[in-house]
Simulated scan of single mutants.
Amino acid sequence: MFSVKMSEELIRVFQLGDEDDRVHVIILTADPAAPAFCAGADMDEVVNGSALLGRKEDKEHEHRDPGGQVAMAIYNNRKITIAAVNGHASGTGATALQLPFDFRFIWAGAKVTFPFVRLSIVPESTSTYLLSRLIGESNAAYILFSGDGHKPDAPFLAGLYHKILPTRTEILPIAIEFAKNVAYNIGQVSYAYTKGLLHRSGASIEENHLLESRAIKIIGTSKDTVEGAQSFIKRRRPKYTDTLSENASSWYPWWKPLDVKKPKSKL
């Protein structure tokens, strides 16, 4: 069950993983023997007035959705993030714990449910933003408005999952194998820049061209770029050594993050 405590712990984990140069990949999964990957919010907390739906003492502009805070911590993480979904997923288990990840692997027998409208609440965890970007607005509308449970291979979920595997026990080993392959073959800085260009692209193709051009120029003289060219020529695995703490440009991030922690934050 997703709780306020769980949200705080997840945010801390992804913050630490982002800051530590030794970390290249973060994988989230569940005990394969558990009845579900995540069955959604802890309803006892919801009924008792926790921060999940907003504390009674909070004014409407002061509430910050814990699931959204988790989703942003994952989405803005500069490392490779993987959701290894080895069970049924509902509510936050289908939103914050899946949508903001770079890659998603799932068990074919899992049931994925977005029940918010049926519960007379609105979708959380920035899912209205992420889901429409991942599968298109039409498919996102169908999933969110119907509130039905779906199998991972449902046509309107096409493209959401990178691999759908037949057994629950396969999910984590396959995710780890994939993580190793990606981590050993990608430079940490170039990955972060590319992720930023996808998530924080320009408002037009011209603006995106300017952003890409500057990133290319900045990283073009790096040790990792030289190593990448040499490994390609010599047909060997690259040995990238540049790190975000030491080699990321002061230009990155090029966008101005909105401070969502302050109640009076303005859009």
Rank of each mutant, 00 (worst) to 15 (best):
L52T: 00
L52Y: 02
L53T: 13
L53R: 13
G54E: 00
G54P: 02
G54F: 00
R55D: 10
R55Y: 11
R55S: 11
K56S: 11
K56V: 06
K56R: 13
E57G: 14
E57P: 05
E57A: 14
E57V: 09
D58C: 11
D58F: 12
K59Q: 14
K59F: 10
E60P: 13
E60W: 14
E62C: 13
H63W: 15
H63G: 08
R64M: 04
R64W: 04
R64V: 05
D65P: 02
D65W: 07
D65I: 13
D65K: 10
D65S: 13
D65T: 11
P66S: 12
P66N: 11
G67F: 06
G67C: 10
Q69K: 13
Q69R: 14
Q69V: 12
V70H: 05
V70F: 03
A71T: 08
A71G: 12
M72I: 05
M72S: 10
Y75E: 12
N76A: 14
N76K: 14
N76L: 14
N76C: 10
N77L: 08
N77C: 15
N77W: 04
R78H: 08
R78W: 10
K79L: 13
I80L: 13
I80Y: 00
I80A: 01
T81P: 01
T81C: 05
A83Q: 02
A83C: 05
A83K: 00
A84T: 08
V85D: 01
V85S: 01
V85F: 06
V85Y: 04
N86S: 03
N86P: 02
N86E: 00
N86M: 01
G87R: 02
H88V: 02
H88Y: 07
H88I: 04
A89S: 09
S90F: 12
S90Y: 12
S90G: 12
S90I: 15
G91I: 14
G91V: 14
G91N: 08
T92N: 08
G93I: 01
G93T: 02
G93D: 03
G93Y: 02
A94Q: 09
T95F: 01
T95H: 04
A96C: 13
A96L: 09
A96G: 12
L97Y: 09
L99I: 09
L99F: 07
L99W: 06
L99N: 07
L99Q: 06
P100S: 07
F101H: 06
F101R: 00
F101L: 02
D102A: 05
D102R: 03
D102Y: 01
D102F: 01
F103Q: 08
R104V: 02
R104N: 10
F105S: 01
F105T: 00
I106L: 05
I106Y: 06
W107T: 11
W107M: 08
W107R: 08
G109Q: 04
G109C: 06
A110E: 03
